[in-house]
Design a protein around this nucleic acid. Structure first.
Length: 723
DNA sequence: AGCACGCCGACT
DNA sequence: GTCGGCGTGCTC
């Protein structure tokens, strides 16, 4: 361990990469173990920092300022945590200290040592009597004594096992609270494989095939071996039901949640419980991948294909990819669960780098719903009028369900009443004055709302350009679909769930509760309802208008659509006796498309194979690595000039390294809130070559801003989701 | 990123 | 005469 030498410590502080201050800074202090939280002077400010590993050979500048405060009440952050953070900072091209401090609970940086000691002491009082014996030695220590100990850099070794040994095989007799249903052979084989060796596992099974039960058993084994378990889900929405299930199964264990909807105080408490080794299970969203877990024994990433695992601002990390790295680093198994794995994951399975564990059957003998592709071209069209939103045959099928007391789910990935209003006389459309996008008509509050910048106005009575009173909605959103289905099926109880109806805290739960209670016949919603929720009485799911993704410029659009439709199909017929007559309807103008053919057969593998072939011939991920350099300015030409200059700086390097620089292009929505955006694609068949180029190139870009004035922001996105 | 210092316009 | 505009520059 490279401890402090000659009274010098390196401290990671919140300094952005582009200032040339991305690396830790040197301060004078008595020996402090790496990972210790400190406060240090920086310029005229006092900032929080983390003592970092300092290379022994590094020279100290002559005059160093002293560390101002040592927060010794908490054990230092472990070596593997620091390595994870250092890797993420380097890979996603951010300052080390910037990332390290950004992934700590915000509340932590506000505390001084005394306040921290008080909280730590409180949390170390065991919540469950059974834990008292094991923790007795630690709990006995007073906060003051702990603080005094830690002042000398002494920490109970048990709290910071830096190098975790290999995951031991599953043992019998963990203190499970609720009895588990018996596993089928495939589930048992999966649990055995995960328990046998560290590595990355793809748990591949359709909705209802019992993936969660495998997670629970694998977790049980890890807990029995005295380890902590990290479970990640893509969205906060999905935490409550999994939390309930984990809490029920592991009643004697301490379970904490980590996500951005917690209050600052809760987030700090949960994070500390994990860091102190008090929490046995951590359930969270992508930010939980950075939780400090001194006894980590298993990582689960459920719905690993979900785009929400990629952070979309600041350090744009992929929590799924970091989970895999972390598992490798700490020698613990990583389980990636999905019915429709990301093509990156699937390719790694093909290459033998990940192990596929297949769950091929639905639990309880349920079958997947029959997929019915409805060809919208067959609908008779009255002259001059648009095609109806819903095929009459689909409306009949919904009506049948209502008669039988069953529920239907209509899925339309577009909220609002209509995506755009237009004037039938002069052709005016409801564009946003600040963005290159249409403003969406929301009938509920009679507003025209831009979904990009939030600009909202009361919908005009007449055309703002020509005064014509006949302004009409174009296209359909969930509000309009809800209205139409209510008209087509009088007496049906119709509900709608989307971002607009769930704005208030607790309203999603309330609405889902109504569906479960049987108070709803037809549920209309966006992709929010396609994910995770376990509806028992739904026997019909319909994708009302999914075609747009087929021809999107985004190369991942088909992959996303397939996953979404498979997931939506999974909502139907989870109850075995209903499964036989469950149906998934897809209304399409292109029913012959290969994606739908694969969907009809629930054939992920065929779909993945054809997509991978396309990706390979196009030189796209997972057969190449990408990064996007983005720039924003009031005028596109300024952003353009900056990116061109950046490109020139890199050209020689790129040619040599086998990296391709593409010309700057506007993203799909080029102007948002009066700011023009441009982006430049950087591509290489070699991840390493791309990484090397970025590391050499990006530090030079800060200086460009003084030449290209007017660039408001620039940023790099490594492994971008969309290009 | 903050937060300084630093040199030019409209106000008590 | 100052209050304050945000342009450059530094932080171990």
């Amino acid at each position: 361990m490279a401890d402090a030498v000659n009274g010098v410590v390196a401290v990671a502080v919140e300094t952005p990469q582009h200032t040339g201050l991305g690396a830790p800074l040197d301060y004078s202090a008595d020996a402090l173990p790496p990972g210790t939280l400190v406060r240090v002077p920086l310029g005229r400010r006092d900032v929080p920092g983390i003592v970092w590993d300092r290379p022994a050979e590094a020279e100290a500048p002559p005059e160093l300022r002293p560390v101002r405060e040592v927060l010794a009440a908490m054990p230092p952050l472990g070596a593997s945590w620091r390595q994870l953070v250092a890797f993420a900072a380097a890979y996603y091209q951010r300052g080390l200290g910037e990332l390290a401090l950004a992934v700590l609970p915000p509340e932590l940086r506000k505390l001084d040592d005394v306040q921290l000691a008080r909280r730590v002491a409180r949390l170390r009082k065991p919540a469950v009597p059974a834990r008292a014996a094991r923790r007795a030695g630690l709990a006995a220590a007073t906060a003051a004594a702990e603080a005094a100990d830690a002042q000398h850099g002494v920490q109970p070794a048990a709290d910071t096992p830096e190098a975790a040994p290999a995951f031991p095989p599953a043992e019998a007799g963990p203190p499970a609270a609720a009895e588990a249903p018996p596993l089928n052979d495939e589930q048992q084989a999966a649990v055995d494989a995960i328990g046998a060796a560290a590595g990355t596992y793809l748990l591949h099974g359709v909705t209802g095939s019992g993936k969660t039960e495998v997670y629970l058993h694998a977790a049980e084994a890890a807990l029995a071996a005295g380890r902590q378990v990290l479970v990640m889900v893509p969205e906060i929405n999905l935490t409550p039901q999994l939390e309930a299930r984990l809490a029920q199964r592991f009643a004697g264990r301490r379970l904490v949640a980590l996500h951005s909807a917690l209050t600052p105080a809760q987030r700090l408490k949960h994070w500390l419980l994990a860091h102190l080794g008090e929490a046995d299970l951590v359930l969270g969203t992508r930010l939980a991948v950075f939780a400090s877990l001194p006894r980590l024994g298993l990582i689960v990433a459920d719905e690993e294909h979900d785009p929400s695992f990629k952070q979309q601002e600041g350090a744009r990390y992929s929590a799924r990819d970091l989970a895999v790295y972390r598992g490798h680093l700490e020698g613990v198994p990583v389980v990636l669960g999905s019915a429709t794995p990301s093509l990156e994951t699937w390719q790694r399975v093909q290459e033998g780098r990940y192990t596929r564990l297949a769950l091929s059957q639905r639990i309880g003998g349920g079958v997947l719903p029959r997929v019915r592709l409805f060809d919208m071209n067959t609908l008779p069209r009255q002259r001059g009028s648009a095609a109806p939103a819903l095929a009459p045959a689909l409306v009949d099928a919904v009506a049948e369900r209502i008669e039988r007391g069953e529920q239907s789910l209509l899925f339309l990935n577009r909220r609002g009443y209509a995506p755009v209003l237009h004037c039938t006389a002069c052709g005016w459309k409801s564009g946003c004055p600040h963005c290159s996008a249409w403003r969406v008509f929301h009938k509920g509050d009679r507003s025209l709302r831009c979904h990009h910048c939030g600009f909202s106005e009361r919908v005009p009575r007449a055309c703002p350009d020509c005064g014509n009173l006949d302004i009409a909605p174009l296209g359909r959103g969930t509000e309009r679909l809800e209205e139409q289905i209510a008209q087509l099926l009088p007496g049906a109880r119709v509900a709608r769930i989307d971002a607009d109806t769930t704005r208030l805290k607790g309203s999603l739960e309330a609405q889902l509760g109504a569906v479960h209670a049987g108070d709803v016949d037809v549920l209309v919603g966006t992709q929010m309802i396609a994910k995770g929720h376990d509806f028992r009485r739904i026997t019909l799911v319909a994708a009302v208008n999914p075609d747009s993704a087929l021809f999107a410029s985004d190369f991942r659009a088909p992959e996303r659509l397939f996953a979404l439709l498979m997931q939506a199909a999974g909502r139907a017929g989870r109850d075995a006796q209903q499964a036989a007559r469950s149906e998934m309807w897809v209304q399409s103008w292109h029913p012959q498309h290969a994606l739908y053919a694969a969907l009809r057969k629930h054939d992920y593998e065929a779909f993945a194979a054809s997509q991978l072939e396309e990706r390979q011939s196009a030189g796209l991920p997972p057969f190449s690595s990408l990064a996007l350099l983005r720039a924003e300015a009031r005028e596109a030409s300024i952003a353009q000039g900056f990116l061109r200059a950046a490109s020139e700086l890199a050209q020689a390097m790129a040619d040599e390294a086998g990296v391709t620089l593409y010309p700057p292009v506007p993203p799909p929505v080029a102007r948002v809130a009066d700011v023009d955006r441009l982006q430049m694609l950087v591509e290489s068949p070699s991840r390493v070559a791309l990484q090397r180029l970025l590391a050499a190139w990006l530090p030079q870009l800060h200086a460009l801003r003084s030449v290209h004035k007017g660039v408001l922001r620039w940023a790099v996105d490594v492994d971008p989701l969309a290009i």
